[in-house]
């Protein structure tokens, strides 16, 4: 329940309202984390926000978070500068089971800021590429100037063993890439794959994840080989406060990463 203190060692902008920061622990070593897990970040006196960990899990000493300024706490987080102190509780929650998918064709589908929570799993897949049959990363964003981690996307795309497809919902004429929703891009990518051997990790707005899962299933990907990451109001992160309940699940403990078939019925219900 008590935050551990970290020092902000580096901050850098990602987008207009999105920044990344690297934190170094002050109260003992930073704990190991799994891809897809999150921390509760506490800027002094403001409150806590659940932010997924977006760095490399083989290097837990460099704790990296990417945050968009949307509320009081996340705005305070994006306003942090080098040398500031923050409190951290975590890591919490379930993870992308990327390590269990050896021999499979891996598909990452990241909509908007769904890419940061997937990045630790992407790093793992890239570092252990030979363990997997294929690796495809699909990233959809609103417009070309809101693509997340554009340099890394280019770097990943330059690898001969990795497919990277980027698509935007709208663009101006200078853009020569794809325009269209992420599911259109996903449908195309799946057309060339052995769908029954695909393991898919989908992260982004809930609507985008629902539609992506439908595309994956229509293509023949088994529904127990699709994982999504849910968002609900998170206060305590340890299953005590009840806010993040999603049907019988606490998103903080049972999620945020869920296997699609376990929550498929709930995804279609309003106000659940």
């Amino acid at each position: 329940m008590i935050p551990r203190r970290y020092r902000v060692v580096h901050v850098w902008p990602e987008l207009d309202d999105v920044m990344s920061m690297e934190l170094a622990p002050l109260d003992g070593p930073s704990p190991q984390f799994k891809p897809g897990q999150f921390n509760m970040i506490y800027p002094f006196g403001v409150g806590e926000a659940a932010i997924s960990i977006s760095g490399d899990m083989t290097d837990p000493g460099r704790l990296i978070h990417t945050t968009r300024a949307v509320g009081a706490v996340s705005s305070a987080i994006t306003g942090l500068t080098k040398g500031d102190m923050v409190g951290i509780r975590g890591p919490f929650g379930s993870h992308w089971p990327i390590e269990d998918q050896t021999g499979r064709e891996i598909v990452f589908v990241a909509g908007g800021l769904g890419l940061p929570p997937l990045r630790p799993a992407i790093y793992h897949a890239l570092q252990n590429r030979k363990d997997y049959d294929g690796l495809t990363i699909i990233h959809g964003a609103r417009s070309p100037d809101t693509l997340v981690y554009p340099e890394e996307l280019t770097e990943w795309k330059s690898r001969f063993d990795t497919e990277v497809d980027v698509t935007v919902d709208h663009a101006l004429p200078g853009w020569t890439g794809r325009v269209g929703v992420v599911t259109t891009c996903l449908d195309r990518a799946l057309a060339g794959m052995d769908a029954v051997n695909v393991s898919a990790f989908v992260c982004g707005p809930e609507v985008m994840m629902r539609f992506s899962a439908q595309s994956l299933i229509a293509a023949g990907v088994p529904c127990d080989r699709i994982w999504v990451s849910m968002e609900r109001n998170m206060k305590c992160a340890i299953g005590f406060c009840g806010h993040c309940q999603y049907g019988p699940d606490f998103v903080c403990r049972d999620g945020p990463v869920f296997r699609y078939d376990k929550i498929a019925r709930r995804l279609g219900l309003k106000e659940i």
Partner: peptide, 13 residues
């Protein structure tokens, strides 16, 4: 649950 005090280089909890 807890309290925190501002210090010259951050805070204590």
């Amino acid at each position: 649950l807890w309290s925190a005090e501002k210090t010259t280089d951050g805070f204590t909890v």
